[in-house]
Simulated scan of single mutants.
Amino acid sequence: MTGFFKLLKGGNKPSFVAAVVNTFIGLLKMTAYLFTGNVAMFAEMMHSFGDAANQYFVFIGSALSKKAPTDKFPNGFGRVVNLACLGAVIIVGILSYETVKEGLHHLLHPIQSSGVLISLGVLGIGVILELYVFYKAAVEVLHESGEEAKGFSPFIKSFTHLNRAKPATKLVFMEDLVATSGGVIAIIAITITYFTGFGQAEGIASITIGLMMFYVVGRVFLENARGAIGETDEEMREHIAGIVLADPKVKDIRRLQVIKEGESLHVEIVIEVNPALTIAEADDIKDRLALLTYAQKGVAEVTIEFDEDDQILGWS
């Protein structure tokens, strides 16, 4: 049990913060919904609880993915975070369906809800808290991408660097972007209903929020399915190829693979060298390239093999 808690300390921090905040927000929205019967509030309640469950899954999965390899699992546990994300989207998918269904029901059979001030107050608090979590996730995206984060710049710069963030951070970023937007949509819908009597606005808001949740489900599923299978990091592959070819003793690259294993990268390199090299010289090359490759962000394992130079340049 002590080992498990040590692993949790290495879990993705933005996902844990987001999970705690969304649990609190979900309880606030549930209380408001019970008092008001507002369907837009119901949608937001489901959204917050869905995000919280998702983010708890991701936090635990990201922590377990850092567990050291064992004799039974020699390849390590890097892809556990992808499997956790895939499990989490099932929960969000179910809640998305319920949200859309409730919105359709309210659209066809609008019911006048009460407690508009309670609803707007709770949603306002929720938007502020979600915006805070979204900002923290945006800062983490830039940090994982090796970029600076100052002032309000993360709100804009994070979108251009999102693909370089870890799976867990990326999930929190997307969920809280949708959560913040959903809160604003719910506020607009409740305000329209209050001032115009157009009760269907809340149903439309619920359907919109549910569809936004479905978008996150689809995006997260596809991304983590690729990660669970094992996806090549093309950008890092080209970067490492440049490092390898810069070594004067390397004639060519026969094969180079950079596979994403959850939040880590596993690198396999087969290089071509002069067959007249001694074992000691080849060992020096291996040590030199391994040291440079391990220094790259996210690289957890490096395997280097040799082949004799065939005098044909194969790597482009």
Rank of each mutant, 00 (worst) to 15 (best):
66 K>F: 00
69 P>W: 01
19 A>D: 06
29 K>D: 04
34 L>C: 02
71 D>A: 14
35 F>Q: 10
61 G>R: 05
70 T>D: 08
24 F>S: 13
16 F>I: 15
21 V>C: 13
31 T>C: 07
74 P>A: 12
35 F>G: 05
56 Y>N: 11
40 A>N: 01
44 E>I: 06
43 A>V: 03
18 A>Y: 01
56 Y>R: 07
27 L>E: 06
48 S>R: 05
18 A>T: 11
48 S>W: 04
27 L>R: 05
25 I>K: 07
46 M>S: 12
15 S>T: 15
56 Y>A: 10
69 P>G: 01
29 K>G: 02
18 A>N: 12
19 A>L: 08
18 A>W: 01
16 F>N: 00
28 L>F: 15
58 V>L: 15
53 A>I: 15
25 I>E: 05
42 F>T: 14
50 G>R: 11
39 V>R: 12
11 G>E: 06
30 M>R: 00
39 V>H: 03
16 F>R: 12
70 T>K: 01
68 A>T: 10
44 E>F: 04
42 F>M: 15
70 T>V: 08
11 G>K: 10
66 K>M: 04
14 P>K: 00
60 I>S: 08
39 V>L: 05
13 K>D: 01
22 N>M: 03
17 V>E: 06
37 G>S: 14
58 V>G: 05
58 V>N: 15
32 A>N: 08
13 K>Q: 14
34 L>G: 03
21 V>K: 09
67 K>V: 04
65 S>E: 06
39 V>K: 03
14 P>D: 08
76 G>R: 09
29 K>L: 13
60 I>V: 15
72 K>D: 14
31 T>I: 11
36 T>W: 08
65 S>Y: 06
18 A>E: 07
55 Q>R: 00
34 L>Y: 12
66 K>V: 07
50 G>L: 09
54 N>S: 14
32 A>M: 01
64 L>R: 13
63 A>W: 01
70 T>Q: 03
47 H>C: 13
43 A>M: 13
46 M>F: 15
28 L>V: 11
29 K>M: 10
52 A>R: 05
74 P>F: 09
64 L>W: 10
26 G>N: 11
44 E>P: 01
75 N>L: 14
11 G>N: 09
59 F>Q: 04
33 Y>I: 00
30 M>I: 13
13 K>Y: 08
60 I>E: 12
40 A>Y: 03
60 I>C: 08
41 M>K: 03
20 V>H: 01
49 F>C: 10
21 V>T: 15
39 V>S: 02
43 A>R: 10
30 M>Y: 13
63 A>H: 00
44 E>R: 00
10 G>P: 04
55 Q>A: 02
51 D>T: 13
67 K>E: 13
36 T>P: 02
65 S>L: 04
49 F>L: 12
18 A>D: 03
51 D>C: 12
53 A>K: 03
12 N>A: 13
51 D>E: 13
51 D>I: 12
69 P>I: 08
12 N>I: 11
64 L>I: 12
31 T>K: 02
57 F>T: 03
41 M>R: 01
11 G>Q: 08
16 F>T: 08
38 N>Q: 07
13 K>A: 14
12 N>Y: 06
15 S>G: 07
19 A>N: 04
74 P>V: 14
74 P>N: 11
50 G>D: 10
54 N>T: 14
70 T>R: 09
55 Q>N: 14
70 T>N: 06
73 F>V: 14
33 Y>S: 05
72 K>N: 07
65 S>C: 05
37 G>D: 12
17 V>S: 08
